[in-house]
Design a protein around this nucleic acid. Sequence first.
RNA 1: UGGGCCGUCGACUAAUGGUAGGUCAAGUGCCUUUGGAGCACUUUGUCUAGGUUCGAAUCCUAGCGGCCCAGCCA
Length: 578
Amino acid sequence: MSTTTSSSTKSADPATTSPSEPRPSNFVRDTVLEDLKTKKYGDAVIQTRFPPEPNGYLHIGHAKSICLNFGLADEFGGKTNLRFDDTNPEKEEQEYVDSIMQDVRWLGFEWDGLFYASDYFDQLYQWAVKLIQDGKAYVDDLSAEEIRKHRGTLTEPGQDSPHRNRSAAENLDLFERMRQGEFPDGSRVLRAKIDMASPNLNLRDPVMYRILRAEHHRTGDKWCIYPMYDYAHGQSDSIEHVTHSICTLEFEDHRPLYNWFIQQLGIFPSQQMEFDRLSLTYTLLSKRKLLTLVQEKRVTGWNDPRMPTLSGIRRRGYTPEAIRNFCAAIGVSKTNGTLELAMLEHFVREDLNKRAPRVMAVLRPLKVVIDNYPEGQVDEVDAVNNPEDESAGKRKVPFSKVLYIEHDDFREDPPKQYYRLSPGREVRLRYGYFITARSVIKNDQGEVVEVHCTYDPATRGGNAPDGRKVKSTIHWVSAAHAIDAEVRIYDKLFARQDPNQVEEGQEFTANLNPASLEVITNAKLEPSLANAPIEARYQFERLGYFCVDPDSEPGHLVFNRTVALKDTWAKIEKKSGS
RNA sequence: UGGGCCGUCGACUAAUGGUAGGUCAAGUGCCUUUGGAGCACUUUGUCUAGGUUCGAAUCCUAGCGGCCCAGCCA
């Protein structure tokens, strides 16, 4: 992929501390550049952070954020922390923490600091006490529902809680007793005292702490009160001296609150900036909904190869490079849009094309017998491992009298522009010989089950000495040498471009693509694949990119199709069909 | 209809008052022992209307359209 040329890279920029590749311009990077130039943070390097909540697995949308945050720090010699936003013990688990760390590293990034919002619970508590002392926070006894009623609506101001003007002493006492566990869950909250009439709902005395008796994955039962996101996040950023706190657009309305806490506390002024969340066609990127798919067993787990999670995509065969290139190419803006899935697929193909060894595999075997080929003779033909990479070398592939070819590669009655095998037609068997179809054998249903051909011994390797050309080259596997494999063909998980678009009363699961997985149990592979290791990626010539699934066992290989090759014939067929 | 944000080819994104460019997709041709890859070419765009300016995608005004916010989720 070539990087977009941008004006910001035309001239050497003194703020750029690394001589790295020109990077695509975006408004976040521009701001960093500007802040560095004006020395907004003195001589300090920029500090970013990736702050996932450990309540699910990371997905491709997170990859965009990871690449942005780590990428900025890399480019400008800054640092990036991994910080778990673990303020809601009811939804968070160690399993998610572990998977997140694994996925970030797999993507190719290493954090500078590893932190948890829960590391700061004591500090956060002390700051809350300070806000109470300053008359900026109060304990409210209203129920959740009463608070909601008092909040007003989008168009009407809220009303003050009757407890809004308690004395600092009383608030201090109550808050301390909240922490001590004197009150039942949900009976009281600590609220910031801001403005119940603010047009920004986030400023209508937001809740800072709630009482929640839940086992926290790190602090256990030490606390029975937990800070809310708005109170925890900005302060965590500030503690870590995060200079650029990059989050998604839906937090734009929270920025005034983010700033309010920092200002009241007089602590390090981290700056929040918001960019657009990634959306992809035919894809859902909502941890809540992905969780639903897992819980309802619509998929086999978070790492089902159809899932847009990093672990799913990894198992599907995507490379970290492909994802990083994708993230660099899609850019960062404030526009809410939806990217075509084709864009993502392009970047896997691009990467795999360069690195994946080619191999021959037949997914839907059709038996071919070469009548004039000597019985029992085996011919080891040379095959190129990767035409894109000469250093990948060559291998031998056994050729013999009985072969399998792809069922699609033979048509008894070939349509226009179909160049593959058909009665009387000569084609090339890749790296093998030219063969001509002579007759077919059909089963009781009238389906072709065997094609008898003749071959031209002079065409060994694939070229005719007399210079005659052939329109098409097809792949094959020697029947006697083939190894059997299971191949899982994946398609879009959702049938609708926008999986959230549902008929009245329906769930998003109604949009699930019933054909998202097709399992082929009798695929035939060339023997070189016998010892293919888990996660190894190949191009099955003319078919697509495939990788070895962890479900594989000795003697039973399982492949996942990562993505199909672009298929010109399919286009022609579709066009003439419609 | 309170507040916030956003409108550039079909999609994503650049242009920072001075040539509307790139990537994907689509199409055409070349090439090809993968109908792959590669190469070349092509199509299509500044939401609308006013204004400022020598000059506006960019600044101003007004419309129109979209997204977000009324969790003791993040």
